[in-house]
Design a protein around this nucleic acid. Structure first.
Lengths: 207, 207
DNA sequence: GTCTATAAATCGATAGAC
DNA sequence: GTCTATCGATTTATAGAC
């Protein structure tokens, strides 16, 4: 053990942070698997390998647990946005983010959008960090959308917010689940299919 | 009161059927509003205006209640399919069904798709009438899809089942909820927007 | 900080009187 | 068939020992 181990509280804090990250990863997977309402705190504790009261030492409630997991998801989303090549056309950067989200979804790591009538939604809007991050992510995507519409790569007539909502919704589109369940497609094919129908539509194109 | 009133048991059966229809309408609305897991049997009874045990005289469990409501929804879907003009192009008939579903959604009458990991899904596949109706509806839509692809109105490269799943998914697309929540669009505009992005995609079209 | 044990509330389902 | 009252199971959350 290093001499700083007892002197600095930082190491312990790092361990704490590490454990909380394990917790949030499991919460994220459970949110994707069964949603907020069906996820039980007992199950989270069991998967992490600790007792339930220990979990409540880290997070004060089930809602706080889910909110923290959603914040983490938004942070990873922002990272995916920043990872897009700066020299690519804005529409291709948008496609890249959608493809990243679809891959996460197929890996069972993408919780559904907080439904407009969900229990979770109310507590999320009260969570300070969540709204800020959501606005940040929306602003970055919104800038690309406006840019792509100016370049006439995205349909100029569509309201930008309709495009933004559609991109968010495709990230947890049940279509990918059903395609996966059919067993006729690989994950890459499913990502290609959903991305294509999202941007190009179901109707045939002449261009 | 007609003379047959006491002689025939049919009248009482009609009243029974009528009450069950009221129940299923409320269940349908509640399924659309909060989903199967958050819907409580107490709430259904309260909305119908009867006590919970009375509800259990009509339906033996919460699952049976939801399954009956989903069957009723599929029957109305089949009716909407049959209501499409026979002389219209197949792609326009498909659009007509999607538009009907979106209007139902905006009226709060369209439950979400039974998620691949839902509690409800397992009991639905065991319900005899449900699967038959689902196959019937899928077959009718599938015939139109094949027809539209032959005529090159729908993208010929897309797997027909991907198109079918996409149409089902758009009926309960959360995008419509968020557009409605924004308050910037009328119901008709939302239906137009979602239908357009579904068939034409987000990317600009030259045709 | 982690555990065992339990409180408090909710929900699906039923017993039994009318 | 409809009601009041209640059971049994599940789940969130906490008390208290270590």
């Amino acid at each position: 053990m290093s001499p700083q181990a007892t002197a600095r509280p930082t190491l312990r804090e790092q361990q704490l942070k590490l454990r909380e990250d394990v917790i949030l990863r499991e919460v994220n997977a459970l949110l994707a698997e069964k949603g907020y309402d069906l996820m039980t705190v007992d199950e989270v504790a069991a998967r992490v390998g600790i007792a339930k009261p220990s979990l409540y030492k880290h997070f004060e409630s089930k809602e706080a647990l889910a909110a923290a997991a959603m914040v983490r998801l938004l942070e990873r989303t922002r990272a995916a946005i920043e990872a897009q090549p700066a020299d690519a056309a804005p529409i291709d950067r948008l496609k890249g983010v959608v493809r990243w989200a679809l891959h996460e979804h197929l890996r069972g790591q993408m919780p559904s959008l907080p439904s407009t009538r969900s229990t979770l939604r109310d507590s999320l809007v009260r969570h300070p960090g969540y709204i800020d991050l959501l606005i940040d992510v929306s602003d970055r995507l919104g800038a690309w959308i406006a840019d792509a519409q100016r370049k006439k790569a995205l349909a100029p007539r569509l309201p930008p917010e309709a495009i933004l909502y559609t991109l968010f919704a495709r990230a947890c589109d049940p279509v990918s689940d059903y395609l996966k369940l059919s067993g006729n497609f690989s994950d890459d094919e499913i990502v290609d299919l959903v991305t294509a129908t999202c941007f190009d539509g179901l109707a045939a194109r002449r261009d």
